[in-house]
């Protein structure tokens, strides 16, 4: 859909005019007339445009700019997706510690291999109890200690339950990292690496020299940036973001679809439904009831939005704790 030269763009726009109404429904934003800049001469070809709020007006075709992503304003990305309450369930009985969720996450967010927004840990609660794999994303707490301490509202709680970070606002004080009891947050200590997994596995380039970004979006365009909190920036804090841009399109986060064993469910608490990789949609309350779902360190009172199903009747071998002398 990328329009390189004027001709093809014009052609596409013509086609767009015909299908404007349907396109809007389909979620392809096609409007936004640039201000009538005198310096920029139009092509003289006038086209009728239907704006997002339903108005029809005439514009020069060369003044039109194509948006291929769902337009989401800054304000909207701070509010979140209306009517949703995102929730995740991780079935520890199904997890075999393969780490594919981490790989999928890194691929989606263009993170280098060792930078883990979702971690797979080997846990053993006491000496004689059985070890198990523990998958730890950000818990997107309902009483988040991290947003409470942020001095500039750079990290905030959205109405859809997601705890997000505005990396244009973050001052890098790292108070949120100190406040998070789950070590979910990581910091860009130096210029972050932008990893292109699609081109070549592990092909890393410095972010500043990289030009192609996800969905080809101009990040300086404040009018309609996509929901992308995850773009790593030097001197800013980042973490698991529950893939809000995927949720906006009704898709599952990449760790869910990347999981090898259907161990992660994601869904909407308002709908009381969660879905796993295979597409099985089950009732959240029923799942938590049947499998004795719990939340990690409930005693902290942070009210996480991630539930765990205990590692009972495990289908896969337990981790070998000898390899991971925990703590320090």
């Amino acid at each position: 859909m990328k329009a390189e030269d004027n001709n093809s763009r014009r052609n596409f726009l013509r086609m767009g005019m015909i299908t404007t109404a349907t396109a809007a429904v389909a979620g392809i934003g096609l409007s936004k007339v640039l201000s009538k800049d005198k310096a920029e001469k139009g092509s003289g070809e006038e086209v009728k445009v239907l704006s997002a709020d339903g108005k029809v007006f005439v514009a020069d075709s060369s003044h039109l700019k194509l948006k291929t992503h769902t337009p989401v304003t800054n304000a909207e990305s701070r509010i979140g997706i209306p009517g949703k309450k995102f929730v995740m369930v991780i079935d520890l009985a199904k997890c075999e510690g393969c780490g594919k969720c981490t790989i999928a996450c890194n691929k989606m967010h263009h993170l280098p291999k060792q930078r883990e927004w979702i971690k797979v840990l080997e846990m053993q609660d006491s000496h004689d109890s059985a070890p198990y794999w523990f998958v730890k994303p950000c818990f997107h707490c309902d009483n988040p200690p991290c947003t409470k301490v942020c001095p500039v509202d750079a990290t905030f709680k959205r109405e859809d339950g997601i705890v997000a970070i505005d990396n244009e606002r973050c001052i890098g004080c790292r108070f949120c990292m100190a406040a998070c009891p789950y070590s979910a947050r990581v910091f860009n200590w130096s210029e972050p690496m932008w990893v292109e997994y699609s081109a070549k596995q592990g092909d890393t380039t410095s972010k500043s020299t990289c030009c192609s970004k996800i969905e080809d979006v101009d990040p300086t365009d404040n009018d309609a940036p996509p929901e992308r909190f995850f773009e790593s920036k030097k001197g800013c804090v980042e973490k698991c973001d529950f893939c809000p841009h995927m949720a906006r399109e009704g898709k599952l986060p990449c760790c869910v679809t990347g999981c090898g064993k259907d161990a992660i469910y994601f869904g909407d608490q308002n709908e009381d439904a969660v879905t796993n990789k295979s597409g099985q949609t089950v009732s959240l309350s029923q799942l938590l009831e049947d499998k004795a779902g719990y939340r990690f360190m409930e005693e902290l009172g942070t009210k996480p939005r991630v539930y765990y199903l205990p590692p009972v009747n495990r289908q896969f071998p337990k981790p070998d704790m000898k390899n991971s002398e925990s703590k320090s």
Partner: peptide, 17 residues
């Protein structure tokens, strides 16, 4: 990490912090 954004404490300050 971003000392040049120090003035955000005034423009976007949150008294809860």
């Amino acid at each position: 990490g971003h000392p040049e954004r120090l003035y955000y404490l005034v423009t976007n300050g949150r008294i809860q912090s």
